[in-house]
């Protein structure tokens, strides 16, 4: 059984269709990149999976359980966590308080201190600034905080929306390196929105490309980078299935 299954998912905002009949699945412990131009429906897709955006029709399953129609907090309690577009850290809260917001849903509260230590080990800067207001962090640090905060819910499946947005390439390398290390450590399943196929190829994993709310390509990220299939997918020169 796949970790995440999406079946014929459509999302509409009024008359605007953001996603139409999108279907895919992700195996447990795998890494899936979602790419595509702005407005292709990437963030709507993550939002629908997490329960923040209502699906017009279709079905989303996690471990065979139906997620669609549930409220976000119920989905989070099933082991899904999200690093959202724009990071959405709680600026008025301290770094450590940000990390602790998502701990309330856990049944294994006793392992929280260990997990906190793991996050601080992976991102030492967060440990150094644990009592600072999160609003005072730099963009890269806020990205790390958003990842750490999502991990503190002890998720099985994590959705990450554009971790590279607005960050210097060197910082992006660092963020991915830590993210992959933590994935291996926890046996996480990752779904990552990433514009750059070159970046996705370097990190490694499967990639789907969205355009106009549909999946127009699906394959190994490395293959996209090599054959520049992505460009075709973007501009619709024959790659559309």
């Amino acid at each position: 059984m796949p970790k995440l299954g999406v079946f014929d998912l459509s999302v509409r905002y009024g008359k605007l269709t953001a996603l139409r009949d999108v279907s895919f699945h992700v195996a447990e412990g795998a890494r899936l990149f979602i790419s595509g131009p702005n407005g292709a429906g990437k963030s709507s897709l993550l939002g629908a999976i997490a329960g923040e955006v209502r699906a017009a029709h279709g079905r989303i399953e996690m471990d065979g359980d139906i997620l669609s129609g549930r409220v976000p907090e119920a989905i989070a309690r099933r082991g899904l966590s999200m690093v959202p577009e724009g990071r959405r850290i709680f600026r008025a809260l301290s770094v450590q308080e940000n990390l602790m917001v998502g701990v309330g849903l856990r049944r294994d509260r006793s392992s929280v201190p260990d997990d906190l230590a793991t996050i601080y080990e992976a991102f030492p800067i967060l440990g150094d600034r644990r009592h600072t207001n999160a609003g005072a962090l730099s963009g890269g640090q806020q990205q790390m905080l958003a990842i750490g905060r999502a991990l503190m819910t002890n998720p099985k499946l994590m959705l990450v929306d554009e971790p590279s947005l607005g960050l210097a390439p060197k910082v992006v390398d660092e963020v991915y390196e830590r993210l992959c290390a933590l994935q291996a450590l926890r046996g996480l399943t990752l779904v990552i929105v990433e514009q750059s196929s070159a970046r996705a190829a370097r990190v490694g994993g499967r990639m789907i490309v969205l355009r106009g709310g549909r999946i127009v390509a699906d394959g190994d990220a490395a293959a996209f980078a090599e054959h520049d299939l992505l460009k075709e997918a973007y501009f619709g020169e024959g790659a559309a299935a």
């Binding site: 409220v71 976000p72 999200m82 917001v101 998502g102």
Partner: peptide, 13 residues
């Protein structure tokens, strides 16, 4: 600060 984000982290509205 951000109710939607809090709910994504499992906070019961």
């Amino acid at each position: 600060e951000d109710f939607g984000m809090a709910r994504l982290l499992g906070v019961r509205a």
